[in-house]
Amino acid sequence: MPKHVIIVGGGIVGLAVAERASRQGHRVTVLEKEAGWAMHQTGRNSGVIHAGPYYRPGSLKAELCTAGNRSMKKFATEQGIPWELTGKLIVATTDKELPALAELRRRSEANNVPFRLLDAEGARSYEPHVAAVAALRIESTGIIDYGAVSRRLAEMVASRGGDLRLSTAVVGIASRADRVIVSTADEEFSGDLLVNCAGLHSDKIARMAGLAPSARIIPFRGEYHELVPERRHLVRGLIYPVPDPELPFLGVHLTRMMDGSVHAGPNAVTALAREGYSWRDIRPSEALGDLAFPGFLRMASNNVGVGFGEVRRSLSQSLFAKSLAKLVPGITKADLVPAKAGVRAQAIRRDGALVDDFLIERTPNQIHVLNAPSPAATASLEIAARIVELAQLD
């Protein structure tokens, strides 16, 4: 029997859920507070189709990323959305990083991610300017414009009669027996199921709906630079460092984009607003609530050195360039120009643990996506399939 599914959030995950549910014959309403689709995490990331070497075997990220790598490429090809198979180098620049690189090799094997282990000469055969003692070559990594994917998903939903509402913020949610009532400033929507895909505001929407979520979103700003056009030749594809295994961030990396530009970044500094794209973006009520959260205080106290280093790099283009020069020694401060920043919605538990997997919680007529940072864009079609299955909509 067809149901009415109300989806809060018009990023790639929310629109993928809408497309999947509408394809199954359900009535769909999407409520997005911005004037366009994919304005935040989806539209401000590196545009990488991830392959899955980083994620703990058996985790949702590992399962859905590797499947999403295939389904995203297939979807883009079928829908005429440009994408490129670039491959990626994950580079160990010192012998101290070799054990962590070996762990990524183990995870790649466990997650069925195609790879090649390279020595320094092998790494330079792919990226002539890279500094490496060893590297993993991940062949199935690609690049795409996730904003274009999101807009196509919205078109597909609209073609099936979906109700797509931009500039429509949710102000109230109430459950009544087998119904859920979602209120905006001008209207009420009554549905059978609420799916919360609100990203940076997902925990707020969950609390509005009466849920006590197991984690709180803390916004981490990722600042990017671009290589000036005359220095783009230094990077052929994607060059990543070996990441800190204790943190869910991949480190400052170099990514060739669909338009030929080369993005450098991101770092990871705590933002002072959920949509804090610069140091000037401050919302005291949001910042005080997030920074006073016991989980944030515990996490920060355990990572003082890392946090201080990220702030210094944020405030110094010279230090940012120095981080990149560890990967490609030819890069200098003069080669960089600032680019659009993003904000990662990172869930943190009360004990200070960073949630390192996708987190989905549900009640009888609600499903809340409470942690879906990278590789959520890659995995979006698979996350949508999982939610539709969980809600018994298929």
Rank of each mutant, 00 (worst) to 15 (best):
Asp356Ser: 14
Lys326Thr: 08
Pro219Gly: 12
Pro364Arg: 13
Phe320Glu: 00
Pro57Tyr: 07
Gly330Ser: 08
Thr270Ala: 14
Phe189Leu: 11
Cys197Lys: 07
Asn303Leu: 08
Ala325Trp: 01
Ile282Gln: 03
Tyr54Thr: 05
Pro128Ile: 13
Glu84Phe: 13
Ser202Phe: 03
Lys88Pro: 03
Lys204Asn: 15
Thr332Val: 05
Pro2Tyr: 12
Pro373Gly: 09
Glu382Ala: 07
Val113Arg: 11
Leu393Gly: 00
Asp356Pro: 11
Pro57Ile: 10
Ala345Arg: 02
Ser183Arg: 14
Val195Ala: 01
Ala379Lys: 07
Trp279Asp: 12
Gln79Gly: 13
Arg105Asn: 13
Ala62Tyr: 03
Val195Thr: 03
Phe249Met: 06
Val28Trp: 00
Val28Ser: 01
Gly58Glu: 09
Val171Ser: 10
Arg106Ile: 15
Gly10Ser: 08
Ala353Phe: 11
Tyr277Val: 06
Gly237Pro: 12
Ala102Met: 13
Glu109Trp: 15
Gln79Trp: 11
Glu389Lys: 11
Ala100Phe: 11
Gly10Cys: 05
Ser108Phe: 12
Asp203Gln: 10
Met156Ile: 10
Ser46Met: 14
Asn365Trp: 10
Val328Cys: 06
Gly9Leu: 04
Asn112Tyr: 15
Glu109Cys: 15
Ile143Asn: 01
Ala51Gln: 06
Glu78Arg: 14
Thr86Glu: 02
Arg221Gly: 05
Gly14Arg: 03
Glu361His: 08
Ser125Thr: 14
Ala271Gly: 02
Ser159His: 12
Glu310His: 02
Ala273Tyr: 04
Leu193His: 00
Ala321Leu: 06
Gly142Asp: 03
Thr94Glu: 10
Ser150Thr: 05
Leu393His: 03
Gly295Ile: 00
Arg232Thr: 09
His26Val: 01
Met208Lys: 10
Pro284Phe: 06
Gly68Asp: 01
Val388Ile: 05
Gln41Trp: 06
